[in-house]
Design a protein around this nucleic acid. Structure first.
Lengths: 222, 222, 222, 222
DNA sequence: GATGAATGAGTCTTCATTCAT
DNA sequence: GATGAATGAAGACTCATTCAT
């Protein structure tokens, strides 16, 4: 078997096991048993267990990075929201399709190795930075309200991670609905939009029975 | 030294180490060295390493659970948003104050033990359920737009986790600003509120230059 | 509580546990828990676990030694068999009454400590020597056939041990029947006595149907 | 080295050490040091220390079981005593040749593990049952006196064990003499055969000078 | 290339014993 | 005398990695 084919074979089996049992509970013995190769053979193709894991992780990271495109502004470019939606769609559909990889990335991804941990963190930071850029752009375009876009971007990232993790865990939830909900939520939050700009509702009406829409959201919008 | 004092001492040191190195890279030797006790002493107070870790985790989980109160609706109750803010404030200030515990909960919290993993997941699910209840309540009160509140609740939870993790990592960011940003983001999303209800902007204007506010958010609000 | 009373209390509980679990599986923790004393108190009364065990063992050994009397020959002395029977009766009734001690002596009595093992062996050797003396006496008196009385004595000792062990294990079997069987067996073996001296049966008739009594036992009695 | 060879090598060394020091005082370190292998290698061939010991024990048990044949009755079959003698010869010569194994079986064989203890007891019970069958057969054939053959069989078993143990310990004593003595003793006991059937001696003469043959054995033969 | 036997550092855990209070 | 917290040596077992065949 040729080098790449062999590597692929081992990677394929390893993914499953890592996803199921996590990094530490997975032994080389598990992997070679599944892959049907000898102990020594494993080390012919991978420096060590950690490198194998890293490679799997790298794969997801690359895939995902490739699926997140910078928003383009300008005549002839699609609607910004469309671009966002397309990004999300690509990312979420990959994540939900490659359940095993997703699980590895979302759950078993910390505490092995300082270096590896940092790589994963760096990946997320990169994603957050992309999101932040989009937000900053939106602010410039007066589409996005002024706010701490760094915090916002992590909130968005975290929301995506958690929703995808949940969807992956439960197995239900279509990619489309997940994407739409994330998008809606990210853009508009939970409030009914009508309530957000009513001229007659504001901080002034704050007290009272606590049920007025204005007193609910008003103060948040400075 | 008396039982409770000794336990506390060991717990205190263990927290630090677990937070710094994670569960697997921390060994009993590390803990006893830090705590300045003998090997046997450790096992006098804790069944084993796992049990110690579990206890630390349980502590955070209890603390947090106690800090999240159900929203109360009715005359004489504070504004719902105020209640949300208070919850967030209690949670976030605890998390940012107890940095070590936070790190343990947010990062090193998976892949030890199926049982332990499940406990943590159950905790998050409980929190998500609380959030969802509040959202459902909001929907009923016509304050929250109709949507899949389960997904929403996980998005909110994820947002909080990620922002707190980031804030904890970076060390900057005041509790107040973190809370306000999360609250704003959760309630209103990223969009400028004015854009959300303009009567003359809607799905119809979807195509085109991709820059119009309506074409940006309109389609999301069906 | 006075020294001797305390010792006795601990010894009493320890016996039970040693009998049930053997020396190695019994911990000091078990003993003090049962005896209701503190860890340190244990070491106030016994040098260590081994010494405690040794003391228990010594107790049995002394009791048994006292119950085995030398056969006395001479006018006015009871029948030799009666003396044997009386010895056996005293020994066996003690062993079956003190089931726990018996179990310790018979089962858990080797492999701790070279020294302890040797003490036990020495005890058995002493018993065997006593038996051998009786046999030698019997030979002198022409009551016992000439043979290797050392081997004989160990055979008898072993027989007693095994039968008592079995009786102790099963719980049935009266002391009397055990004693009678041992005695009968020791003195006469298994053969029907008539067969042993019939003049017309002997080695000569050896071949044939393999069932003749002479051909069965004859050759043994040269 | 190939699997079977390595196992055999480890078993060989382990036997010696177990025999010398007993189960508990023998540790894995001893065994691997003797066998000249690394710690991990040990666990490549044996699940754990207990399993290794069990295997050694099993080996003796199997060997011995194979050496004890059921007595066959019928025309053309060898004399029953000859068959007994052959059984004993096979068993005793194995036990005295494999001194180490014998020591393990006879001395260090209790108190590890309830399960292991029970296996050993079961083995002895099996042997006792075999002996009892032979005795019952003898009774039927009117060669063996009526008696409690279960007790008898344990007495015989115990006799063999103790004599072999002694012979193994002392190192003197030929297999042949051991076998003959056991056989003689088992069949005829210690009494001079002439004394057993003299018509003029019986219970009636019980008292007296304690030296008369009849008063010695008579009462035993009811 | 492939194999799988061998390695040994690393960890956890137990438990008899000591000693300050 | 009594206590029980503290000790640490001892021992079992794991598993990633190496290397001779």
């Amino acid at each position: 078997m040729h080098r790449q084919a062999r590597r692929a074979q081992v990677l394929r089996h390893a993914k499953r096991i890592f996803a199921r049992k996590g990094y530490h509970r997975t032994n080389v013995a598990d992997i070679i048993a599944r892959a049907g190769i000898a102990r020594g053979t494993f080390y012919l193709y991978f420096e060590n267990k950690r490198e194998l894991f890293e490679e799997i992780l790298q794969q997801v990271v690359s895939e995902l990075t490739a699926r997140v495109l910078r928003l383009k502004v300008g005549a002839g470019e699609p609607d910004a929201v469309e671009q966002l939606r397309a990004n999300l769609l690509r990312v979420v559909s990959y994540l939900l399709a490659e359940r095993e990889l997703t699980d590895i990335l979302l759950h078993h991804s910390t505490g092995f190795d300082r270096e590896l941990d940092e790589q994963i963190q760096a990946f997320y930071d990169r994603i957050a930075a992309l999101i932040q850029r989009s937000l900053d752009l939106g602010v410039e375009m007066k589409l996005v309200r002024g706010a701490d876009t760094r915090i916002m971007s992590y909130a968005i990232l975290g929301g995506i991670k958690e929703v995808v993790a949940m969807a992956s865990r439960r197995g239900d939830a279509s990619v489309d609905s997940v994407v739409e909900e994330i998008l809606n939520f990210g853009l508009t939050g939970v409030a009914r939009p009508e309530l957000l700009t009513s001229p007659d509702l504001g901080p002034a009406h704050n007290g009272g029975n606590g049920g007025g829409a204005g007193s609910f959201f008003g103060p948040l919008l400075d």
